[in-house]
């Protein structure tokens, strides 16, 4: 494996891990449900995407061809993350979850 490929994989892995961790930190410490929703939908999805890309690069340099299955998983995650976030936001509005102080505007009645 060439050095360049190795560096690419290492960088991808570390970026992926960092974003996953940041998403989880956001989930753990942001003040209310709607702000917490932002961490997992963006940071975590991108983090896992980067880890999957690292896996694609790794296995393609092992001489096993480009892994379409990995890319399918990634596409699936990117397609489903906004949908589950949307469903959860609707459920939270229905249950009248507390919003943090200083939020402008109001959630709708469900």
């Amino acid at each position: 494996m060439s050095t360049l490929a190795e560096y690419t994989i290492v960088v991808m892995l570390l970026i992926g891990g960092a974003f996953t961790l940041v998403g989880a930190i956001g989930l753990a410490r942001l003040p209310d449900f709607f702000t917490r929703l932002h961490g997992p939908t963006k940071a975590t999805t991108l983090g896992v995407g980067a880890i999957i890309l690292a896996s694609v690069v790794y296995f393609s340099f092992q001489g096993e061809g480009i892994g379409i299955t990995e890319i399918l998983i990634m596409a699936f995650l990117f397609m489903t993350a906004p949908i589950s976030a949307n469903m959860l936001a609707k459920a939270a509005m229905h249950l009248d979850v507390d919003v943090m102080e200083g939020t402008k505007g109001n959630p709708w009645e469900q």
Binding site: V22, I25, R29, P31, K42, V99, K104, N106
Partner: peptide
């Protein structure tokens, strides 16, 4: 998506409270 994730990550790590808005 990449830019958005970096922005959100910086906000989370900076520790200041966010200013959320509900937009119609």
């Amino acid at each position: 998506i990449v830019i958005a994730s970096v922005t959100v990550a910086r906000l989370i790590l900076s520790g200041r409270p966010p200013k959320p808005v509900f937009v119609s």
